[in-house]
Simulated assay, not measured.
Amino acid sequence: MSAPPFTLVGIDHVVFLVDDMDVAMAFYQGVLGCQPGYSYPALGMEQVWTGAALIVLWDTTHPGASAAVPPVAGGRNVDHVCIATSPVDPDDLRAHFAAHGVEIEREAEHGGARGVGNSFYIRDPFGNKLEIKGPAVYPDGRA
């Protein structure tokens, strides 16, 4: 097998299907602090920056999103997306989510691209699972 003619750089973007763009933007900008990205009004699509990557929000109720509507209602094809954060005090994060009415489904210490660190699992208003993960406690994954 030959090597590909490119080098992998990282995740560019993830697309979430939503059915209320105002609610989606309020959550991603107001709760998570994402910054506005590219906008595609003809498609019913907005993008928000999460550090160096984008989350694309595609409104399935918009006429321009017909290609995005899943063939099976309620079907899913993504388990979760992990959003890396700066250092954060776990109590401050818990208080922030509580103030916005966001339930923390699970807390754990998990490995990821930056090593083993604290993870908080939440859902956006459309049921998409997000892992909010601070920097590595052990950058190489070992104690």
Results as ranks from 00 to 15, higher is better:
Val9His: 13
Gln35Ser: 15
Leu57Ile: 06
Ala3Trp: 03
Leu130Met: 03
Ala65Pro: 09
Asp12Pro: 04
Lys133Thr: 11
Tyr138Ala: 12
Tyr138Pro: 00
Ala84Met: 09
Val48Trp: 04
Asp22Leu: 12
Leu130Arg: 01
Val9Trp: 07
His62Trp: 12
Ser39Lys: 06
Pro63Trp: 14
Asp91Gly: 03
Gly10Ala: 14
Val9Leu: 14
Pro36His: 05
Ala65Met: 01
Val88Lys: 00
Pro125Ser: 11
Thr61Ser: 15
Ala136Glu: 11
Ala113Gln: 15
Val18Glu: 10
Ala3Pro: 00
Pro5Trp: 02
Val48Leu: 13
Ala84Asn: 12
Asp20Cys: 09
Asp140Glu: 04
Gly112Met: 04
Ser86Val: 01
Ser2Val: 08
Ile132Tyr: 05
Ala108Gln: 05
Arg106Phe: 02
Val48Tyr: 11
Val9Tyr: 07
Ala136Leu: 00
Arg76Gly: 03
Ala143Ile: 01
Asp92His: 00
Asn118Gly: 06
Tyr38Ser: 12
Trp58Gly: 00
Ala26His: 09
Glu103Asp: 06
Ser86Trp: 04
Glu103Phe: 01
Ala73Gly: 11
Leu130Gln: 01
Val72Asp: 07
Met25Trp: 02
Met25Ala: 14
Ala24Ser: 14
Thr61His: 10
Gly10Leu: 13
Lys133Gln: 15
Ser86Met: 04
Val116Gly: 03
